[in-house]
Nucleic acid binder design. Structure first.
Lengths: 154, 154
DNA sequence: CATTTTTATGTAGTATACTACCTTTTTCTT
DNA sequence: AAGAAAAAGGTAGTATACTACATAAAAATG
């Protein structure tokens, strides 16, 4: 007997997410790294955008402000990022990746890419492409529906 | 300037998940309910499978054991489920939905279904169907890759 | 049948992912 | 320029979603 629940979008999406997180952890941890998906995304954004504040960083990776505060705390304590007070606006903090953070990103990237392939195991190349396009469209259309929408710069 | 990160499966899946959770909360809370997606799925499974233990419940909805312990705690404290010691095996607990839980499920179901549609806003009927099929396949193929695989009964 | 092993659950601890509220600093209005 | 409004970040609290370890009960083994 099968639950009708198994064919609901919400269930399939959650399962996809659990698989994604798990594969990321497997691939990176077995290669000797200790970085979560969110920490990777934050560090990746800091590499691309120097000295951004916490709110901007959160928007760039579509996370809420408070979550990112903790994520950055951990990146800082691991020595991968620096948080400093912005002298122009003493309310906000400027965030930057450290050389150690850059080195980590370069080293971990191949394993992150490998994880991306593994999590779509069992799909043909065409199916993968189709899934990606559909997810992109859904995510773009539904951006405003999430608590922490993506906010790109410019 | 756009991060390449935005076209990674892992990012798209996480965004999908954030949107899904958020829409579920919006639709149900605005209708006066106070139930999370996981609580809904657990209660839904308890309605279908009477007197199952915690491990079985966790497998049926693809969650890890410990998470489900807490979820059931909250269902019990809200009066939607009952946890009793299994007299045949005093290690395990039998879980059952209460009449109040059944009433809640019947009442909330329309809003849950509405949420399922809303989270795929912007897709045509065909695209929705295609996305669902691709997600189903990915989830089935990747089931063993997650920490808490789905374990159906029989 | 005593001992080992396995199994179901619980506890402690960490990391997202939020809401609600508070503080500080800046900006806007009058 | 004084006071109000807005904006950035922090704190407390809740709910997933895990890992690692501990406990108690049942099953398997000699």
């Amino acid at each position: 007997m099968t639950l009708e629940y198994y064919s609901m979008p919400g269930f399939l999406i959650r399962r996809l997410h659990q698989i994604s997180i798990s594969v990321f952890e497997d691939k990176t941890r077995s290669a000797g790294f200790d970085l979560t998906p969110v920490q990777y995304s934050a560090l990746n954004a800091l590499e691309e955008y120097p000295s951004i504040d916490q709110k901007t960083l959160a928007g760039l990776i579509a996370h809420d402000r408070v979550t990112i505060g903790g994520v950055v705390d951990r990146l800082v304590s691991k020595g991968y990022a620096i948080r400093s007070v912005n002298p122009n606006d003493r309310r906000s903090k400027a965030h930057d990746i450290t050389p150690s953070g850059r080195k980590l990103l370069a080293a971990i990237r191949p394993y992150v890419l490998e994880a991306q392939k593994t999590m779509l195991t069992g799909l043909t190349k065409q199916e993968r492409k189709a899934l990606m396009e559909l997810m992109k469209k859904t995510v773009a259309e539904g951006n405003a529906l999430s608590r922490a929408p993506l906010t790109e710069l410019d």
